[in-house]
């Protein structure tokens, strides 16, 4: 699975964090997601055959936040 670190701008409280974690973890292509309010980042482990980091950014932006890819590792 690949790993992506995404900056997420616009989160101000824990319910924003929970809604992102909740919505993305429901997707079977996403194996793990950890969102840090303090660091304004999301760390996502995903199946790069089913999903690209572009999809991850789009999903987070659909939720009303601004997302940009900081780092990706595909192995």
């Amino acid at each position: 699975a690949s790993l992506a670190v995404v900056s997420v701008i616009g989160m101000t409280c824990n319910s924003c964090v929970k809604s992102i974690e909740g919505t993305l973890s429901d997707m079977n292509a996403i194996k793990f997601i950890g969102v840090s309010l303090e660091k304004k980042q999301a760390t996502v482990r995903y199946d790069s055959k089913e999903m690209t980091e572009r999809d991850i950014v789009e999903n987070i932006e659909d939720m009303g936040f601004d997302a940009t890819i900081l780092q990706t590792e595909t192995n």
Binding site: G10, T12, C13, S15, C16, D62, M63, G64, F65
Partner: peptide
């Protein structure tokens, strides 16, 4: 919407 961040998200979308 629990907080301003949530209303901000709705406004942004």
């Amino acid at each position: 919407m629990a907080c301003d961040g949530c209303s901000g998200a709705v406004k942004r979308v």
